[in-house]
Design a protein around this nucleic acid. Sequence first.
DNA 1: TCTGGGGTCCTAGGACCC
DNA 2: TCTGGGGTCCTAGGACCC
Length: 348
Amino acid sequence: VSHYVLHIDFDEFIAAVEVLRRPELRGRPVVVGGAGDPTRRGVVATASYEARRFGIGSGTPLRTALRRCPEAVFLPMDRPAYEEASARAMIVLAEAPGVLEVAGWDEAFLATKHEHPEEIGSALQRDLLERTGLNCSVGIGDNKLQAKLASSFAKPAGISRLGSDTWDEVMGTRPTDALWGVGRKRARRLAAMGITTVGELAEVPDATLAATFGPTTGPWLRRVARGEDHSTVVSARRLPRSRGREKTFDQNIAERGAVRTEVSMLARDVASDLRDQGLEATRVIVKIRYAPFLTRTRGVALDRAAAEQAIIEHAAEAAFDALYEPGSVRLVGVRCELKRVEPPPRID
DNA sequence: TCTGGGGTCCTAGGACCC
DNA sequence: TCTGGGGTCCTAGGACCC
């Protein structure tokens, strides 16, 4: 039997959730991000399709968005609301036949052996809209990579299929950054090697790519360019590797004591997150971003896995003291690497 | 484009050990 | 001590994704 992977990607998810609870915003340019104040530092998390027509997208600085569309509605991020909406939507998807892997707030993979994956896809779209008011796009592929790219071609609210049979024809002439895992930096490095399209990347010898991108990433890039992906759809939740918080100041801070106080507060916040989630840290990493966007990190290993506020805070302060250099600071962060839980004993 | 906040994974160099 | 070669762990930084 054939085996298909569907990628379900909610359309303009965060903006859609906001419009659902504020119906008067429907049809208007809506921009969600930061504290919702476009005169303060922050970037766009999601813009509604109406706002995207003004050149506003994810990652656009809020101040730029305001300039491009002064009449847009700016809203702050409300994580709990999106988590709740996401959970409700995933319940609908989980009713489909097959294995569901939740891959984020607004996306999931479904592995199915159904003969007609398009039917599953359109049934999902209908159920999701009926029961949650959310639209989604569905990509169908022979593997996760193909399905993921296919869903981006299906937006908004469409269904699209990309298989090994059509890969070369659909992807061959596209720029390398159309691929998952190729962003601006890698696209530029590839361009410097004379590689600008997916088709060209697919023909580059592994050794050439390994020399530039490393032994794992290099050959992986070529596999991605060929549409190859052997990863499986897994329903189990992945164990978290780290937990952290960071904060960008509206005004840069040049005073050491004030920066250190912010680090201590973040450390206590992270510690209480760990407590709430039953997690333990093994290492505490402090991040400082200076005004010229120069970022430095420093970690401190803990003697034993811990979640106590005093221990996390003390470690963060030690890391800060070892890291800090006088300068104008725009961001600080505290991140904890987590104890890896022992896998259950194998029974052979 | 004066550039968020939450994460994940990979790389490369040095320490350390045999 | 004019000093190899390999494996593994730790750490800071980088790239990417949503």
